[in-house]
Simulated scan of single mutants.
Amino acid sequence: RGLRAAPAMGRHAARQGWLPDRVIASTARRAAETARLFLEGAKLERRIEPVPQIYEATARTLLSLLQTQPGGDSILLVGHDPGIHDLALELVGSGVDQELDRKFPTAALAVIELPVEHFADLRSGNGRLIAFVRPRELG
């Protein structure tokens, strides 16, 4: 599923202007491939930064990882369920989007605005969901 969905999601993100400054991904082969295909679809050249801690990480671990990132950049975080889904809910809160509450499908994209200047100031619930796009919505 991700082989087809990731490039389409990259193309969609590029059309919407949701292009990341940085890409950090799990060291798992499928996650790295998803990140690479997303970037190809977006026609974007970025180095994929492999981060072993993302594999099987909880939302709390992923939040801590984000808090250590330099500020000012937009980041594409490519990880695994349930951690990535739980992180999205942790950042924006449940009840914001019924589809996001329900499931985070393979290659789905949650665009979350973080109203902080420095990632170190990131806290649970202070993100704002801009969009949640599932691959099946792209046709």
Results as ranks from 00 to 15, higher is better:
Gly83Tyr: 00
Glu56Cys: 02
Arg36Gly: 11
Ala42Tyr: 09
Ile84Lys: 00
Arg60Pro: 08
Leu87Lys: 07
Ala57Gly: 04
Ala42Thr: 06
Leu44Gln: 15
Pro50Thr: 03
Ala35Thr: 04
Thr58Leu: 04
Thr27Ile: 14
Glu56Lys: 05
Gln69Phe: 07
Glu33Ile: 12
Leu62Asp: 11
Asp73Pro: 00
Arg60Met: 15
Ser74Asp: 03
Gln53Tyr: 10
Leu65His: 06
Ala28Lys: 09
Leu77Tyr: 03
Leu44Ile: 07
Leu65Gly: 06
Pro50Gln: 10
Pro70Leu: 00
Arg29Lys: 02
Leu76His: 01
Pro70His: 03
Glu56Val: 00
Leu39His: 14
Tyr55Lys: 07
Arg36Phe: 00
Ser64Arg: 11
Asp73Leu: 10
Leu62Gly: 08
Gly79Tyr: 01
Ser94Phe: 04
Ile75Arg: 03
Val51Tyr: 00
Phe38Ser: 05
Arg30Ile: 13
Phe38Ile: 08
Lys43Tyr: 07
Ala32Gln: 14
Pro82Val: 08
Leu87Ile: 08
Asp81Ile: 03
Asp81Lys: 12
Lys43Gly: 15
Ala57Met: 02
Ala35His: 04
Val92Pro: 14
Ala31Pro: 10
Thr58Val: 04
Leu44Gly: 10
Ile75Thr: 12
Ser26Thr: 07
Glu40Met: 07
Leu66Val: 11
Ala59Val: 12
Arg29Val: 05
Leu62Thr: 09
His85Glu: 12
Ala31Ser: 12
Leu66Trp: 06
Ser64Tyr: 01
Gly83Ser: 13
Ala88Ser: 14
Glu90Val: 01
Gly72Phe: 14
Leu44Val: 03
Ala32Trp: 06
Ala31Gln: 01
Gly41Gln: 09
Ser94Ala: 12
Ile75Ser: 03
Arg47Trp: 00
Ala28Asp: 11
Pro52His: 07
Gln69Gly: 02
Arg30Val: 11
Phe38Pro: 08
Gly72His: 12
Arg60Trp: 15
Val92Gln: 10
Gln69Asp: 07
Val78Ala: 05
Pro82Met: 11
Gly93Lys: 07
Glu45Asp: 14
Arg60Leu: 14
Leu39Ala: 14
Ile54Thr: 04
Ser64Lys: 07
Ala28Ile: 06
Glu56Asp: 15
Thr27Trp: 05
Pro82Thr: 08
Glu90Phe: 02
Ile75Asn: 01
Gly83His: 09
Gly93Arg: 08
Glu33Ser: 14
Leu66Thr: 14
Arg47Gly: 03
